[in-house]
Computed example of a mutant assay.
Amino acid sequence: MSRMIALIILLIPGILAGYGIKLMRDMLFGLQASWIPALWLQFVLGFLFMVLGVGFIGGFLLRRDRKNNKVQERFRRQK
């Protein structure tokens, strides 16, 4: 059950990051989303979505691996 919850927790930021990449790609091709008033704002929102999604997933994995003691010495917490 805990693995299913972890999967759901990781799916939401993963979808958010994917949508951010899509927004940035569409801006480069000149396709504007209907709910965003300007192309530059679309790129900024897409970049923000991507950074937040990837950052959350990376932090989640780093925290899990630290707990299981599976990280390199430089990523371990100082006591």
Rank of each mutant, 00 (worst) to 15 (best):
M1D: 09
S2Q: 14
S2P: 06
S2M: 05
R3H: 07
M4P: 02
M4A: 11
A6K: 10
A6Y: 06
A6T: 11
L7G: 04
I8W: 01
I9T: 15
L10I: 06
L10F: 12
L10R: 13
L11M: 12
P13M: 13
P13I: 11
P13V: 10
P13Q: 12
G14F: 05
G14Y: 06
G14Q: 12
L16Q: 04
A17Q: 04
A17L: 03
G18R: 15
G18K: 13
Y19C: 05
Y19G: 01
Y19L: 14
Y19K: 02
G20S: 10
I21M: 14
I21V: 07
K22Y: 05
L23R: 07
L23V: 01
M24A: 03
M24S: 06
M24N: 06
R25G: 03
R25P: 00
D26P: 00
D26C: 00
M27N: 01
M27D: 00
L28T: 00
F29Q: 04
G30V: 01
G30K: 00
G30L: 01
L31H: 02
L31M: 03
Q32N: 02
Q32V: 01
A33E: 03
S34D: 12
S34A: 12
W35N: 10
W35R: 10
W35A: 14
W35I: 14
I36C: 11
I36G: 08
P37Q: 10
P37W: 07
A38E: 15
A38V: 05
L39A: 01
L39Y: 01
W40Y: 05
L41G: 14
L41D: 05
L41P: 08
L41K: 08
L41Q: 12
L41M: 12
Q42V: 11
Q42R: 13
Q42H: 13
F43W: 09
F43M: 03
V44M: 06
V44S: 08
L45P: 09
L45T: 06
L45W: 13
G46W: 11
G46N: 07
G46E: 07
F47C: 08
F47R: 10
F47N: 08
L48C: 04
L48I: 03
F49L: 11
F49Y: 12
F49S: 09
F49T: 15
V51E: 07
V51I: 15
V51Y: 15
L52A: 11
G53Y: 08
G53H: 08
G53D: 05
V54K: 14
V54H: 11
V54R: 15
V54A: 11
G55V: 13
F56W: 07
I57N: 05
I57R: 07
I57T: 09
G58M: 00
G58W: 02
G59C: 15
G59I: 15
F60L: 13
F60G: 15
F60P: 14
F60Q: 13
L61S: 00
L62Q: 08
R63Q: 13
R63M: 06
R64L: 00
D65C: 12
D65F: 10
D65G: 14
R66T: 04
R66S: 03
R66Y: 07
K67I: 00
N69A: 10
K70I: 11
K70V: 09
V71R: 11
V71G: 09
Q72G: 00
E73P: 13
R74I: 00
R74V: 00
R74F: 04
R76K: 15
R76T: 15
R76S: 13
R77T: 03
R77F: 01
K79T: 15
K79F: 04
